[in-house]
Design a protein around this nucleic acid. Structure first.
Lengths: 330, 330
DNA sequence: CTGAAAGCGCTAACAC
DNA sequence: GTGTTAGCGCTTTCAG
């Protein structure tokens, strides 16, 4: 920058003004400086500038796994709003690992990100309190903050699961298997609650044999379903409350030749769900909307919004494609 | 940091040493400093440290679209190797937009990333030459660098398309439709070349009516296929050289009721391709491997490897699942 | 509209 | 093993 100033015959501060597109610099000087910048291949050092100005133009996004379609879609939405501010996004995957979350949060705070989008792996977030007090802006996504107060954008999992289950009940199903993720995961637990509530609303009792949680992968879902169906009175419908598990369930039904006999509803849409045979009925969470909301809230905070933290609930939507509309066998 | 030093009763430099886990600090002092850090909720300012040390611990990843499974998988692989170094990844999507690429490269260079992974939208990369000369390390992924010399990790698209086409020919198909992306996109062009080469190798002539390029989305692929099949002598097989297009083609065949009559091979695998009916035969590119290779090469350069830039070709693999093994109609 | 001086928070290079 | 001095590249404050 010194060299640029010298070549352009102006002061350091003037170069700084031009580079930062500040107003109040005369056009000829802007031109002169710009020319010098190009001639010298000068690259403004954003890091150095941050040191004094206290804003990095970076937001952090700590997601579950950027390679799964939910996290990836979220990231894309965040990126789109960040870009409008000429901000940039630092991402990492947590893989449900508690230690990783704490370490990455520490790292991002150390890098002085202007804000943080967090889809937490931990269940207790009080460790964030000092940073929050120090001015860190955080928006939780998909999972609720515990032990601290901050904004969140959540899917209404209870309602989504309730709707899915009610949909199956409405078609006459009475034996509905719930295949779910680890019950310790908050969203999974809420879906279980929604399932139970729908049964209760229909005046039914919960049959513990029809609840199989702890399914994380499509393989686990597939095997779990095969196990359950190897019984004298198998279910007539399946609610698979995680997308990978729904895929496993679909695969298992295919293997059993029951794709068109057993109803199946999944939670969380994914590409190609409509191309399966039958098309997979799912509860869809609008990732684009969730990401945009989270980013908008984060930027409102960055812009100085000091209203009380809010919990934003995004309603999921039941998308009928065929698999969920199969009636119980006569 | 000054406060920490004061509280611990040591010098600034000693705190710096402890925070950076440098050797040659006595255990009791480390403990004292660590305690002071915790008491004060001190957060090491990585940005300030970078200013002096000239390394940011950040790599940039400019990909096509982080929400598609190819880019997302790549990003995940990059992240995994970066994490082993306690580095972090700055990502953005280019969406084939030339201007965006240049702007983001400029931004990331300004942020002094230690290295850059680039899946370019541009076709001329000479604009990078000054930065390269200034020491920027760049590894190209999926597309070749033009106008500069730097490392790249590419999929052997010609061979992949050749194999796919030969596979169809081997089953007796003679009228094979090639549905491809914009021919101006390098990878798409190479796939067209592979298709042509396979026909030539089988002693066949290229029928221009059987080449439909410019298909970008699944909708376009679907319509294009419907158009082609609305003819007196439709093809008996389809090679869809882009994953979204293959999905559109599968959807179109489904609509025509020809899923089991017409052979279909796609390029680039995606989740659930095996669950379609019939399972979709594809040419698979190993994203995990590509990402790991690119990151390893980038870090080798960062570590000072000055050997000549190399072009690494990853062979794609034909994955048979049924749709590509349908024989031509008698 | 432009510039000079001070300092952001840290680490390199050296001394002790 | 630990401390001191200088300065990374920029922006802030205030003066002109």
């Amino acid at each position: 920058m010194r060299d640029v100033a010298a070549l352009a015959g102006v002061s350091l501060k003037t170069v700084s003004r031009v580079v930062n597109r500040e107003p109040n610099v005369s056009a000829p000087i802007v031109a002169k400086v710009t020319r010098a910048v190009e001639r010298l291949n000068y690259r403004h050092n954003v890091g150095a500038s941050n040191l004094r100005s206290r804003r990095t133009g970076v937001i952090g996004a700590l997601l579950q796994d950027v390679s799964n379609s939910f996290s990836a879609g979220l990231l894309r939405a965040l990126e789109d709003v960040a870009r409008q501010r000429r901000h940039v996004v630092l991402t990492a995957s947590l893989d449900e690992e508690v230690e990783r979350e704490r370490q990455l949060v520490g790292d991002l705070v150390g890098r002085r990100v202007d804000g943080l989008i967090l889809m937490p792996a931990t269940r207790d977030h009080s460790y964030l309190a000092p940073d929050l007090r120090a001015g860190l802006r955080v928006v939780f996504v998909d999972r609720e903050p515990h032990g601290i107060v901050t904004d969140s954008v959540l899917v209404d999992n209870v309602t989504g699961a309730f709707d899915a289950t009610r949909h199956l009940l409405g078609q006459g199903h009475r034996r509905i298997l719930h295949l779910g993720d680890l019950d310790t995961i908050e969203t999974a637990h809420q879906r279980q609650l929604g399932y139970e509530a729908a049964l209760r609303a229909a005046g039914m009792r919960l049959d513990p044999d029809l609840v199989v949680t702890g399914q994380r992968t499509s393989e686990m879902g597939e095997e779990a379903l095969l196990r359950v169906f190897d019984s004298p009175s198998p279910p007539t419908a399946v609610f698979a409350s995680r997308n990978t598990v729904a895929i496993g369930a679909a695969r298992a039904l295919r293997r059993l030749g029951l794709s068109h006999q057993i109803a199946l509803v999944g939670f969380d849409d994914f590409p190609l769900a409509d191309l399966l045979e039958p098309g997979l009925t799912v509860v869809r969470q609008d990732v684009g909307l969730i990401g945009r909301m989270a980013a908008d809230i984060l930027y409102a905070r960055i812009d100085g919004d000091t209203s009380p933290a809010e919990r934003h609930l995004v309603p999921p939507k039941l998308v009928l494609r065929g698999s969920g509309e199969i009636p119980p066998r006569a």
